[in-house]
Design a protein around this nucleic acid. Structure first.
Lengths: 227, 227
DNA sequence: ACCTGAACACCGTTCAAGT
DNA sequence: ACCTGAACACCGTTCAAGT
């Protein structure tokens, strides 16, 4: 390690004091807030995402945020919609329906498995408030329709796939020993045997095995509905 | 309405002041805390479940709770395990595998759809900390095994079904107009058409249609794995 | 061991004042 | 319109003191 440079640290909240009153140019906007929130989550996790910390990272007072978002929940919605745009829908229209669904679902799970606190938000938020999420739905719906999926079941199928994806995203974050019954093991012999049996298979990621199993069942079950 | 009775209201926190010092018999225990929490949630929702409100409903000071639980998260774990015991696993062993899974999954979803704030807890909590949840897994595992399900895939199948159930539980709580694109409707024609098409079918509960569609796909996909 | 009561370190949010 | 700074009403949790 070289000698520490004096005062200029890595990327601290720039300690330049701004005095009260409207600045000549706005220092905040929703895009900047979203980016700063994402960075904060990356370094400190969701527990570190407080309005105070967010303001600090942007070099403003906490109350300044409320000129651009109406609440902390609003920040979470911004984040959620930003992440929806990162989900890979590119295979719809360029690949067979089965592999397009597969790519979409794996990508969707991977993106949100690192942002599970947003799941309660996205699962119940009206799409009108999340344009990028809506764009994702449009791509997926178009892919289903082009693949000959019966029109009146497209939304139900997407909702079901999404439910599975959200639940699976939580599972990714579960500890490795979640199924260790400990001292109660002898009271649940069937369960313990099944857990041991899975461990014997020596999969890299049990969560991926379960996701694949469920996803393939959904894909082939839904695939049978196509014309 | 009859004339209001004077001081005795419905079921208020009994305002009997207890003075400091150990009471002759403990006034709290984990069962009572769980019951009180459940009642509080029933009347005020999860926003109303605070340590202060919980203590108040039990007629104690907030700090007294910490003699019986180590944190608010601990209360949530107690609740979660209590609810797991309410999930219907009775069909395993008495009905064909398909209908047993069906009964279990619907019941599981219904129970947790009114307690979605517990889902992040149950999804990642080691089973050793939740004996009733563990008992549920034992019943389900035994049912899968008796039905000739390949032993090394039982846990993966349960995990996948659970993921779907948790995601679907959130969906139950979504507003009816969640898919109304509003002013953006014209930009997402395929999606809008599919949403309108589903609405035409006039289902009582779209969330139930989606759940059924996904669950039946999982059941028939997994059912094919049996001997 | 198990309660009370005071205290602590936060939290999101509001609002007057400033430019 | 968009910032600062002070304030508010909470929140979960700790801990000494009491019996």
């Amino acid at each position: 390690m070289p000698a520490p440079t004096p005062a200029t640290s890595a990327t601290p909240a720039r300690p330049v004091r701004r005095r009260a009153g409207r600045p000549t140019a706005a220092v905040l906007d929703q895009g900047g807030i979203t980016t700063a929130a994402l960075e904060l989550i990356g370094t400190k996790g969701y527990n570190g995402l407080t309005m105070a910390a967010l303001a600090r990272s942007l070099g403003v007072a906490p109350s300044a945020l409320y000129n651009h978002v109406s609440s902390k929940d609003d920040v979470l919605i911004l984040l959620m919609d930003h992440l929806a745009a990162m989900v890979d829908v590119s295979a719809f229209g360029s690949e067979p329906w089965e592999s397009a669904v597969r790519r979409w679902a794996w990508s969707y799970r991977d993106v949100f498995s690192e942002h599970t606190p947003l799941i309660p938000i996205i699962a119940v938020l009206p799409v009108a408030n999340a344009p990028k999420t809506l764009a994702m739905y449009e791509s997926v719906t178009a892919g289903f329709r082009e693949a000959g999926f019966p029109e009146d079941r497209i939304i139900s199928a997407i909702v079901a796939l999404e439910a599975f994806v959200f639940g699976a995203a939580y599972d990714v974050t579960a500890p490795d020993d979640i199924f260790d019954a400990g001292s109660l093991a002898s009271q649940v012999p069937n369960f313990t045997a099944a857990v041991d049996r899975l461990a014997l298979e020596q999969h890299d990621r049990p969560t991926d095995v379960a996701f694949s199993l469920g996803l393939e069942a959904l894909i082939s079950g839904f695939g049978a509905l196509r014309a």
